[in-house]
């Protein structure tokens, strides 16, 4: 994962991370569906908190999976 100097939400002036936006959230979860740490994504503290909440909401709404790369 390339090191990013600036948080991509700050860069794009996004005030609030949207839990419905699966394409954006997709970049912040691992191939197993885990929330990626800040050191991997370069997200600032404020937005990382928002990302975490957004991912959890999106999981509940079956927009993104709880676990990825696993089939029964």
């Amino acid at each position: 994962m390339a090191f990013r100097k600036v948080c991509r939400f700050c860069e794009n002036k996004i005030a609030q991370v949207d839990y419905k936006d699966e394409h954006t959230l997709d970049r912040f979860i691992s191939d197993r569906g885990k929330i990626l740490p800040r050191r991997a994504t370069g997200t600032c503290a404020r937005h990382q908190r928002q990302v975490a909440t957004a991912i959890k909401r999106a999981r509940y709404l079956a927009i993104i999976p709880y676990i990825r790369g696993y089939q029964t």
């Binding site: 419905k20 936006d21 394409h23 909401r57």
Partner: peptide, 17 residues
């Protein structure tokens, strides 16, 4: 399922969708 949250000014349909 349903989810009620306080609206933070998000769009009802995200731009990318």
């Amino acid at each position: 399922r349903y989810l009620v949250v306080l609206s933070e000014g998000e769009l009802p349909l995200p731009e990318s969708m």
